[in-house]
Design a binder for these strands. Structure first.
Length: 375
DNA sequence: AAACCATTTCCTGCTT
DNA sequence: GAAGCAGGAAATGGTT
């Protein structure tokens, strides 16, 4: 694309947003998406760690993508660029400058052609998840989401055979409307269900969207959104108190099922990219909560930042959030803490004796120390 | 396909 | 008694 600015230009030009001395960026004539007059912000690690000048409610993660401004979109793309360690210098500024409705209408292949395969797929998948999440209260947005989904993945409409029962595809967190897919059909379900998970591709994705205070904890009688082998398994595994003494619950991680992974985009993405995205380990998830307190304050806090000592303030809420990330609504602090204890041996965590809910990062953990990149 | 890794689940016993 | 800690054992899903 001739004459376009790349992201390094943004990083340079965006300094005007900080020192106010540079001219606003202008798009080339014929640009498909008009540039916003809003100041553009740098898409760098430093930005994401330090620039919180904008009101929190104006962040991309605080509103539906349909309402994003150009700056929101740049922040969003920058977040994925940073999180995936993608080389932002290869991107066109023109590709990044559009409004929310324009972005939401872009088909998958268009995003892929604009941003390249890995990043484009990533952006598209996350956008689907965001549309699913924010479809609440606006049926057109939900329809938009399904139109996109069915357009991109028509095989969903041809699911047949397999286990009986409905697999949750998505849910409307405000209205309680849940959409299930069963053997080629889509069934709306009126009952309230646990909040659907989002397509976490980084810990920030989840945390941006969730605060402990707004978490919905699954009721014992509600259907579970986590994939199980079958309806029978769902009963046996998720409602053990109904079958206690009759069926022994299987140990280990519950099985996933096709189409049960939130929007399905992560499942489909994983086929193409076998490498787990950054930030998918528990200790990284914990670390990110601690280093982004402005996004999820009140869940955890540093006891001694220099030494890496931290404390769970809302242990169950953190566990639920971790469960969302792993698409496992049965996660709790007991299980999370068991995983944390495994880190002692690997020296990712050090023991802190005698203090409840207090842990300490070990020598094999990174990214939390003062002075490290982005911290 | 198999080995490996990082959890997840369940459990018993202990401590606060 | 509840909550948390410790760690063994077995299981799963994803990656190599």
């Amino acid at each position: 694309m001739s004459g376009s600015c790349n992201l390094s230009s943004i990083l340079t030009s965006a300094n005007w947003a900080m020192n106010g001395s540079l001219e606003p960026l202008q798009a080339e004539s014929g640009t498909a998406f008009p540039l916003s007059s809003e100041p553009l912000l740098p898409l760098s690690n430093a930005y994401f760690s330090t620039a919180y000048s904008a009101q929190e409610t104006d962040k991309w993660y605080c509103k539906p993508p349909q309402q994003w401004s150009t700056r929101n979109i740049l922040e969003w793309i920058g977040h994925h660029v940073e999180d995936s360690q993608f080389d932002g210098n290869t991107l066109d500024l023109v590709s990044c400058t559009m409004d929310g409705p324009t972005l939401c209408q872009l088909p998958r292949d268009k995003l892929v052609s604009m941003f390249g395969g890995p990043l484009g797929e990533r952006l598209f998948g996350h956008l689907l998840d965001l549309k699913a999440k924010y479809g609440a209260g606006d049926l057109s947005l939900t329809c938009d989401f399904f139109n996109s989904l069915f357009e991109e993945y028509p095989e969903i409409m041809n699911v047949s055979g397999g286990d009986a029962g409905y697999d949750i595809l998505t849910s409307d967190i405000n209205s309680g409307l849940s959409i299930y897919i069963n053997q080629g059909g889509v069934k709306p379900e009126g009952d309230m269900t646990p909040m659907s998970d989002y397509g976490y591709e980084s810990s920030q994705d989840s945390l941006d969207r969730s605060c402990a205070e707004t978490l919905r904890f699954p009721s014992p009688s509600s259907p579970d959104s986590v994939g199980t082998d079958s309806e029978q398994d769902l009963t046996e595994e998720r409602l053990p108190h109904f079958t206690k003494g009759e069926v022994k619950r299987r140990r280990g991680r519950p099985k996933k099922n096709f189409l049960t992974a939130g929007s399905g985009s992560e499942h489909l993405r994983s086929k193409k990219n076998k490498h787990a995205p950054r930030g998918t380990h528990l200790w990284e998830f914990i670390r990110d909560i601690l280093i982004h307190p402005e996004q999820h304050g009140g869940l955890m806090r540093w006891e001694d930042r220099r030494e890496g000592v931290f404390k769970f303030l809302k242990s169950e809420a953190v566990a639920q959030l971790w469960g969302q990330k792993k698409r496992n609504s049965s996660m709790n602090y007991e299980k999370l803490s068991r995983a944390m204890r495994y880190y002692y041996k690997r020296e990712i965590l050090d023991r802190v004796d005698g203090r409840r809910l207090v842990y300490k990062f070990g020598k094999n953990s990174t990214g939390w120390r003062l002075g490290e990149v982005g911290v």
